[in-house]
Design a protein around this nucleic acid. Sequence first.
DNA 1: AGAATACTTAAGCACATGCTTAAGCAATCG
DNA 2: CGATTGCTTAAGCATGTGCTTAAGTATTCT
Lengths: 119, 119
Amino acid sequence: MLKQSDPLDVLFAALADPSRRSMIDRLSRGSASVSELAAPLDMSLPAVQQHLNVLEASGIVSTRKVGRVRSCSLEPDVLNQAQQWIADRRTLWAHRLDRLGMFLTEDPSAVGIGKGETK
Amino acid sequence: MLKQSDPLDVLFAALADPSRRSMIDRLSRGSASVSELAAPLDMSLPAVQQHLNVLEASGIVSTRKVGRVRSCSLEPDVLNQAQQWIADRRTLWAHRLDRLGMFLTEDPSAVGIGKGETK
DNA sequence: AGAATACTTAAGCACATGCTTAAGCAATCG
DNA sequence: CGATTGCTTAAGCATGTGCTTAAGTATTCT
């Protein structure tokens, strides 16, 4: 219990692998079985399943077993978190430019001077 | 030369580490030196520098050395690629629902039936 | 029932990652 | 000049990741 990791760690890590992204890609076109996901992937079935475990752990993909076939489907809402994190940093960065503009044209006291900010 | 990896691999991998995200966070508020980045990070300076290398390799952060200080700044445009990839899959997934709707209300031949699509 | 299908588990191995400490080096400061 | 500051390199090590093959298990087909 010493090491509980941020959901974003798991999410971004899941997206960092090309095989997993291609699986997501396939699922974005519609749900599929494990072997359908494996088919285009030049690797063994167990390897695919391990990737699938990673995707499930991140929440991007959910699965349920019907008979002997496991059906996998995308949970696109989970991608929101990642998209939002990125969007937020971009917003912050844009705001930084605002402050710099403020500094250049008006009120130096409104900017964090002497903290490496003015380069 | 056998193993050139997708920029998205590197980008998402860079984002998958909490220390690196906190560095990006700091830089989204304005550029900083290496030791300023290291300050809040309960780890050695060399460790921070290795994270910085990863960030630079991904293109998210650029640095230049002035005197004995290295100044680091965010390249937020690089985040576009990641954001776009996510947005694209979400769009595809939404489109999948369109096709399903088409199937339910109108033209069955327009949908991929019998390929695991109808569950 | 027996054979085929569709996963699933387990074990092992090569290589990558995320640190560490110990030195080293160039740019100021006193 | 010699000392301090700010980074940089190198080496080593524990753990994690991405595969593999071999051997299951549960369903469905014949």
